[in-house]
C-alpha cells in the first residue's frame, strides 16, 4: 500500500451482487452489523447477476449474492460455488406508462402482456445485460413464443435503475424487480401494469465461492456471512427494511410477512 492510502488494513470480504440489493439501499443497513461483529469490511461490487457469477467463477470475489435460480444452480453444479442458501425474495413487475398504450392492464399473464406489447410495437426497454432481470425477461418472451426484435425493442445494457428511468423517458414498458421499482417510484411516473403471476417470483440466493477451486478466497468469512444473512439478525433486518412504509424484500420463517 502506498503512502497516503485512504484505507486501513482490515480483513475484507469481497462480494459481487446484483444492482438491486445495492441501489435499493438494503446493503447499507444489512452490512454494518456484520462488519462490526467480525471487524471486517465487506467490499460490494454491484453488477448484474451474470457478471456477479462470472466474478465468482474467476475467483475475483469470495461470495456472490444474486437472483437467477437456474444460473445459480449451474454455478454450484459446475463446482464454482458451495453452500447455496435462499436469502429472501420479492417479485418482478411489468412497468409501463400510466395510459398503457399497448393495453396490458387486463391481460391474464406476463407472457400475454409481453405478446400485446410486441403486437402493438410499443417501446420496451430491456436490460440487455444478462442480469437476473434480463434472464427473467427472456424467459417470458420465450413463453410468449416471441423473439423480440425491431425498433420498438431497446436493449439498454444498463442497470435496473437506469432502465426504469429510460423507460419513463421514452414512455415505454420494462420488467423490473419490485425492490428497485419502489426505490425509484418517486423519480418516475411509470405504473405497475402487471404483477402477481407465479412466473414473476424473484428469489435471491447467496453462494460461497468454492475454496477447493480458488484456494485464496476467504471461505471462513464467506461462510460466516452466509450464516449471518440467513440467520435471525440478517432476516430481521431484511424484513424490517422499508421504503415509504413498504417492504422491499421478504424472508421465509419467523419474520415472514404475508402479502
Amino acid at each position: 500500500m502506498l503512502p497516503g492510502s485512504p484505507v486501513l488494513a482490515m480483513e475484507r470480504l469481497r462480494m459481487s451482487t446484483t444492482t438491486s440489493t445495492e441501489n435499493s439501499g438494503l446493503l447499507a443497513v444489512l452490512l454494518p452489523p456484520f462488519e462490526k461483529k467480525h471487524g471486517c469490511k465487506v467490499d460490494v461490487i454491484a453488477v448484474g447477476t451474470g457478471k456477479s457469477l462470472k466474478l465468482g467463477e474467476t475467483g475475483d470475489v469470495d461470495v456472490v449474492f444474486v437472483h437467477a435460480r437456474k444460473p445459480e444452480d449451474k454455478f454450484v453444479a459446475d463446482g464454482f460455488g458451495v453452500n447455496r442458501r435462499d436469502v429472501m425474495y420479492n417479485d418482478f413487475v411489468i412497468l409501463g406508462p400510466p395510459d398503457d398504450p399497448a393495453g396490458i392492464r387486463n391481460t391474464v399473464s406476463a407472457s400475454d402482456a409481453f405478446a400485446r406489447i410486441a403486437a402493438a410495437q410499443a417501446r420496451f426497454v430491456s436490460r440487455g445485460d444478462e442480469s437476473g432481470t434480463h434472464q427473467k425477461e427472456k424467459e417470458i418472451w420465450k413463453a410468449a413464443g416471441i423473439v423480440p426484435k425491431g425498433k420498438w425493442y431497446l436493449e439498454a445494457g444498463q442497470g435496473m435503475g437506469e432502465v426504469i428511468q429510460m423507460a419513463a423517458q421514452v414512455r415505454g414498458y420494462t420488467l423490473a424487480d419490485r425492490g428497485t421499482y419502489i426505490a425509484y417510484r418517486k423519480k418516475t411516473d411509470l405504473a405497475v401494469l402487471r404483477q402477481g403471476d407465479k412466473g414473476l417470483w424473484n428469489p435471491y440466493g447467496v453462494i460461497a465461492v468454492n475454496p477447493a477451486r480458488h484456494p485464496h478466497v476467504k471461505h471462513g468469512l464467506a461462510m460466516k456471512f452466509i450464516e449471518y444473512l440467513t440467520g435471525e439478525e440478517g432476516r430481521r433486518i431484511i424484513a424490517d427494511f422499508k421504503i415509504d412504509g413498504e417492504p422491499l424484500f421478504f424472508v421465509h420463517g419467523p419474520h415472514e410477512v404475508k402479502h
Binding site: 500500500m1 502506498l2 492510502s5 485512504p6 484505507v7 469481497r14 467490499d43 461490487i45 474467476t58 475467483g59 475475483d60 480458488h214 485464496h216
Partner: peptide
Amino acid sequence: SRQGPFGGFGLLFTPS
C-alpha cells in the same frame, strides 16, 4: 484478474 498472469497479487478491485 485471478485468471490473469498477475492474478496472484489480488490487485483487482483495489485502489492499486
